[in-house]
């Protein structure tokens, strides 16, 4: 389970793009995105980027959009009705963010938009242009788990694990805004994420512990 298991390190430290969320599935998807990106980059869109962003996208049409996810820019063709969650999972292959209720109630899809936790299922991808988007994949510190991830692991803060990426990202966002929360603030900060297994006491402990880890600045060594 530990992230530092040497058996998992099949490539040299520093050379991998796991941190950027590249998975086999993502790699395959990206090939498709790349092709679409090339097709869209020519004479179809001659205007400047800013002017383009202001233009009407017709129903059913796709437009070239650029999203900055986990520190990396992705340009792709997207329909305005695509949610950020759909694009992150199905077009960028970052499947850490989960599809739960798809109605803004469960929190499994939580991502950070400019450091602030939001539901990716209730955000149109076109609305996230120009923002810094962070998914659970972006919380890795190189090959190591980030402090919140590590705390969830140590505190056994999950059973089935489906809600965990959303819980971790919500906790991270909450702690970025409030590094030293009270118990009440932790409960409130985490209230937008449901856990169907009911691992709440452990999740609560994990967030407390993550706050400490982050303050100590010793991410993966807890």
């Amino acid at each position: 389970m530990k992230s530092k298991d040497p058996a998992k390190h099949t490539h040299a430290r520093g050379s991998c793009e796991c941190r950027k969320g590249i998975t086999r599935r993502g790699f395959m998807t990206r090939l498709g995105v790349g092709a679409a990106g090339v097709a869209a980059s020519g004479a179809l869109f001659p205007q400047t980027a800013a002017a383009k962003e202001m233009e009407m996208i017709k129903a059913g049409d796709m437009a070239k959009i650029t999203l900055r996810v986990n520190g990396r820019e992705h340009t792709l063709l997207a329909e305005p009705r695509w949610t950020l969650l759909y694009v992150i999972r199905e077009k960028l292959g970052l499947t850490g963010s989960k599809i739960g209720c798809e109605r803004g109630e469960c929190g499994a899809c939580t991502v950070l938009i400019d450091n602030i936790p939001r539901y990716a299922c209730m955000t149109l991808a076109v609305e996230a242009r120009g923002a810094e988007i962070t998914t659970v994949e972006g919380l890795m510190e190189g090959e190591d788990l980030g402090p919140v991830q590590q705390a969830f692991l140590e505190e056994d803060a999950f059973q089935c694990g489906y809600c965990t990426p959303g819980q971790v990202v919500a906790a991270e966002g909450h702690l970025r805004a409030d590094p030293d929360p009270t118990d009440d603030e932790v409960l409130r900060g985490m209230s937008g994420n449901l856990c169907r297994c009911g691992a709440y006491p452990h999740i609560f402990k994990a967030v407390r512990s993550a706050a400490e880890k982050r303050r100590r600045g010793k991410g993966g060594e807890g």
């Binding site: 009407m56 996208i57 305005p80 009705r81 076109v126 609305e127």
Partner: peptide
């Protein structure tokens, strides 16, 4: 979601 046009 159902299809719609979009402008910002």
């Amino acid at each position: 979601l159902p299809k719609f046009a979009y402008v910002r």
